[in-house]
Amino acid sequence: VDNKFNKEQQNAFYEILHLPNLNEEQRNAFIQSLKDDPSQSANLLAEAKKLNDAQA
């Protein structure tokens, strides 16, 4: 993981990586967004979790 991520951002990265119901395309999009703007990690994680739950 890129060293410019802080602890919260790293946690978001790993959580998104391991959400079971996202397809690869969705997962990659969230990860790319996280890399583009790490400050949005909490929002991105919340969105990813919502999508993950919706696809459960």
Rank of each mutant, 00 (worst) to 15 (best):
V1T: 11
V1C: 10
V1S: 13
V1Y: 03
D2T: 03
D2W: 02
D2A: 05
D2Q: 05
D2I: 05
D2C: 08
D2E: 04
D2R: 00
N3V: 05
N3E: 05
N3F: 00
N3Q: 12
K4Y: 13
K4N: 15
K4T: 12
F5Y: 07
F5G: 04
F5T: 03
N6M: 02
N6P: 01
N6A: 01
N6R: 00
N6S: 02
K7C: 12
K7H: 13
K7M: 10
K7P: 12
K7T: 08
K7A: 13
E8M: 01
E8W: 03
E8I: 02
E8F: 03
E8Q: 02
E8H: 03
E8G: 04
Q9A: 05
Q9C: 09
Q9R: 01
Q9P: 03
Q9V: 08
Q9N: 04
Q10L: 08
Q10E: 11
Q10S: 05
Q10N: 09
N11Q: 14
N11T: 09
A12F: 07
A12N: 04
A12R: 04
A12E: 04
F13L: 06
F13S: 03
F13Q: 11
Y14Q: 10
Y14L: 14
Y14F: 11
Y14P: 01
Y14C: 14
E15Y: 10
E15W: 10
I16C: 01
I16H: 00
I16G: 01
I16W: 01
I16M: 08
I16D: 00
L17V: 07
L17S: 13
L17P: 02
L17T: 10
L17W: 11
H18L: 13
H18W: 12
L19M: 11
L19Q: 05
L19Y: 04
L19P: 00
L19F: 09
L19W: 01
P20S: 13
P20K: 04
P20D: 11
P20E: 15
P20Q: 06
P20W: 06
N21G: 04
N21K: 12
N21P: 00
N21M: 07
N21S: 10
N21A: 14
N21T: 06
L22F: 03
L22G: 00
L22S: 00
N23P: 07
N23L: 14
N23C: 10
N23R: 07
N23W: 11
E24W: 10
E24V: 10
E24C: 15
E24N: 14
E24S: 14
E24Y: 06
E25L: 15
E25C: 14
E25I: 09
E25P: 09
E25T: 02
E25K: 08
Q26G: 01
Q26T: 07
R27K: 07
R27F: 04
R27N: 02
R27I: 14
R27L: 06
N28Q: 13
N28P: 01
N28A: 11
N28L: 13
N28R: 11
N28D: 11
A29Y: 12
A29T: 12
A29D: 13
A29C: 14
A29F: 14
A29M: 14
F30K: 01
F30V: 03
F30S: 02
F30I: 03
I31S: 08
I31Q: 10
I31Y: 08
I31T: 09
Q32P: 00
Q32E: 14
Q32V: 12
Q32A: 12
S33N: 07
S33T: 14
S33Y: 07
S33D: 11
L34N: 01
L34Y: 04
L34E: 00
L34W: 06
L34C: 08
L34F: 11
L34G: 02
K35C: 06
K35D: 05
K35I: 04
K35M: 12
K35V: 12
D36E: 09
D36A: 09
D36K: 07
D36Q: 08
D36L: 12
D36R: 07
D36W: 13
D37K: 09
D37N: 07
D37A: 10
D37F: 05
D37T: 13
P38G: 09
S39P: 07
S39M: 12
S39C: 06
Q40R: 15
Q40T: 14
Q40G: 07
S41D: 04
S41Q: 03
S41W: 10
S41H: 15
A42G: 10
A42C: 15
A42Y: 07
A42V: 12
A42R: 10
A42E: 13
A42W: 13
A42S: 06
N43E: 05
N43W: 05
L44C: 09
L44V: 07
L44I: 08
L44M: 05
L44F: 09
L44Q: 11
L45M: 06
L45H: 02
L45E: 04
L45T: 07
A46L: 10
A46W: 11
A46S: 15
A46C: 12
E47L: 05
E47V: 13
E47K: 05
E47Y: 05
E47A: 09
E47M: 06
A48W: 01
A48E: 00
A48Q: 00
A48L: 02
A48T: 01
A48C: 09
A48M: 02
A48R: 00
K49Y: 08
K49H: 13
K49S: 12
K50I: 07
K50Y: 12
K50S: 11
K50H: 05
K50W: 14
K50M: 12
K50D: 08
L51I: 15
L51C: 06
L51M: 11
L51V: 13
L51N: 04
L51W: 05
L51R: 05
N52Y: 02
N52L: 01
N52F: 02
N52R: 02
N52I: 02
D53Q: 03
D53G: 06
D53H: 11
D53V: 03
D53W: 03
D53L: 15
A54L: 15
A54P: 09
A54D: 15
A54M: 14
Q55D: 06
Q55V: 14
Q55W: 15
A56D: 06
A56F: 14
A56L: 12
